[in-house]
Design a protein around this nucleic acid. Structure first.
Length: 480
RNA sequence: GGCCCGGUCGCCUAGUGGUCCAGGGCGCUUCCCUUUCAAGGAAGAGGUCAGGGGUUCGAAUCCCCUCCGGGCUACCA
């Protein structure tokens, strides 16, 4: 039988990098088994909805290369895929449970519940619903439900053991008496997460439930609901969370967690996928470079770690560098377009890209490194022209000689400039590095940057000469 | 407090009773390469396998206890 997996985000904010890792595992699992992948939006908490969240989910996942077969915009055999549009389904199921005697109407006010909790806390008791409405005669409750505000609660048994054989954690057990009579349908007519997820997973034919570890605590509640309906429980896998450096769940206070932010900061989707896949999973070999296709081929649920992993930006940066270097130049140029001014010349960008490809940690880094080729607006501290252990006069002299030598360089190519400047260094008795510094600063305004000779060639003779002259003038007025 | 999950170098991890005086990667240090910075190459520092008891000829690996961290404990997901 073909597998069906779903990922079910709540549209309560921008697509979170931590949940992406869980979606990624779901996706890879479904794809490697030739199964179906489904996006279901769980918006049963009307108070926490954030406008644009669904767009953010679509944009972010598509950018990462994660696609799905059924969803709100894709449609499918179980449409709609947004829970707020499936309300009658949940009510029908909740009432079915009432008819079976497995659930009951509860008319307790939120105030009474809050008071109850306060009293229980004061007495250091377990805070849980006291089943106040559980014994109202069914007929009377049904009658009151027509006019009174109410919720529907599950009748939880007093004893018994609930258990799953989790694909990641192995067997986990709970005693039924640790669970309260949970709410299934809220007074606003919306289902709770617990009812909705169980009903939808069953109705949509989900074969494997894979989600974040933070959900294991609610598994016994789900088990009870499955049991009440008489449904089979699909295999479950609770994957470890992505943690912040402090060991708590990764959140905004650890820095940005929005996928869109990583895109804007110049990260490659390939790098993010590769990095993220390795937090909580390892192939058991020493290979660490994985494309999405590789993951679909080699990833195994059995190899998923049971402990949470901490977010490590340095390691992400490393993978980003690796993937940038692996990109064909044409592709890198294409991706760089969004990170440099639109008016920058395409041809020049194409020429300079190979020079900086291995000098970038993120796509964002490129702009500052190559700006000198596209703008004449350089500003630098003129003392930067003077190499360590050299003085103003000597540097001035060297600049003059360099200028002379470069003026007569023809053709003005790296191949020719190289021996020319090397010979000059030899003649002056200067280290090549010392000769390069004033020239580099003069033409780029920076002490570090792409290779000098190639930079000179790309800049062109005319501009190079002009900038060296400017440097000369600047330095003439310097007191050191 | 209760229930549950987890605990191998700073970080991601390999390891499922012997070949582990614990391997790889990131980061860090040093060196090489070198026109800067990167990239690349080489070397190195870094771990009482949370701690303590067992079991066993032998334990990071099995059992028990303790400690620490985390999640949940809502008409939030």
């Amino acid at each position: 039988m073909s597998v069906r997996l779903r990922f079910a985000p709540s549209p309560t904010g921008a697509l979170h990098i931590g949940s992406v890792r869980t979606f990624l595992y779901n996706y890879v699992f479904a794809r490697q088994r030739g199964g179906t992948f489904i996006l279901r939006v769980e918006d049963t908490d009307q108070e926490r909805l954030v406008p644009g969240a669904i767009d953010s989910i679509y944009d972010g996942l598509h950018w990462l290369g994660i696609t799905w077969d059924e969803g709100p915009r894709e449609g499918g055999p179980h449409a709609p895929y947004v829970q707020s549009e499936r309300l009658p389904l949940y009510r029908k199921h909740a009432e079915e449970l009432i008819a079976k005697g497995a659930a009951y109407y509860c008319f307790c006010s939120k105030e009474r519940l809050a008071e109850l909790r306060r009293e229980q806390e004061a007495r250091h008791e377990l805070t849980r619903y006291d089943r106040h409405c559980r014994n109202i005669p069914a007929a009377e409750a049904a009658e009151r439900a027509k006019s009174e505000s109410h919720v529907i609660r599950l009748k939880v048994p007093d004893e018994g053991t609930l258990a799953i054989d989790d694909l990641v954690h192995g067997r986990i057990e709970w005693q039924a008496n640790t669970i309260e009579d949970q709410v299934l349908l809220k007074s606003d007519g919306y289902p709770t997460y617990h009812l909705a997820v169980v009903v939808d997973d069953h109705v949509m034919g989900i074969t494997h439930i894979m989600r974040g570890e933070e959900w294991v605590a609610s598994v016994p509640k789900h088990l009870l609901i499955y049991r009440a309906f008489g449904w089979d429980v699909p295999p479950m896998a609770h994957v470890p969370d992505v943690l912040g450096p402090d060991g708590k769940k990764l959140s905004k206070r650890h820095g940005s967690t929005a996928v869109s932010q990583f895109r804007d900061d110049g990260y490659l989707p390939e790098a993010l996928v590769n990095y993220l896949a390795l937090v909580g999973w390892s192939p058991g070999t020493e290979d660490e470079l994985f494309s999405m296709e590789d993951l679909v081929r080699v990833w195994k649920i059995e190899q998923v770690q049971s402990a949470g992993g901490k977010w490590d930006k340095e390691r992400l940066d490393f993978f980003n560098g690796v993937w940038i270097r692996r990109l064909p130049v044409e592709e890198l140029v294409r991706r760089l377009r969004d990170f440099v001014p639109a008016e920058w010349d395409e041809g020049l960008l194409r020429q300079v890209t190979p020079l900086i490809q291995e000098r970038m940690k993120t796509l964002k880094d490129a702009k500052d490194q190559i700006a000198f080729l596209f703008t004449d607006d350089l500003s630098y501290d003129r003392t930067a022209l003077i190499p360590k252990k050299k003085d103003q006069a000597g540097t001035l002299q060297t600049l003059a000689r360099s200028l002379a030598v470069l003026r007569s360089a023809s053709p003005f190519t790296a191949a020719l400039i190289r021996p020319t400047l090397e010979a000059l260094a030899e003649e002056l008795g200067w280290e090549r590095r010392d000769l390069s510094q004033p020239i580099r600063v003069a033409i780029t305004g920076r002490t570090v940057g792409p290779p000098l000779y190639e930079s000179l060639e790309l800049l062109g003779k005319e501009k190079a000469i002009a900038r060296l002259e400017t440097a000369q003038e600047l330095l003439t007025g310097v007191k050191v």
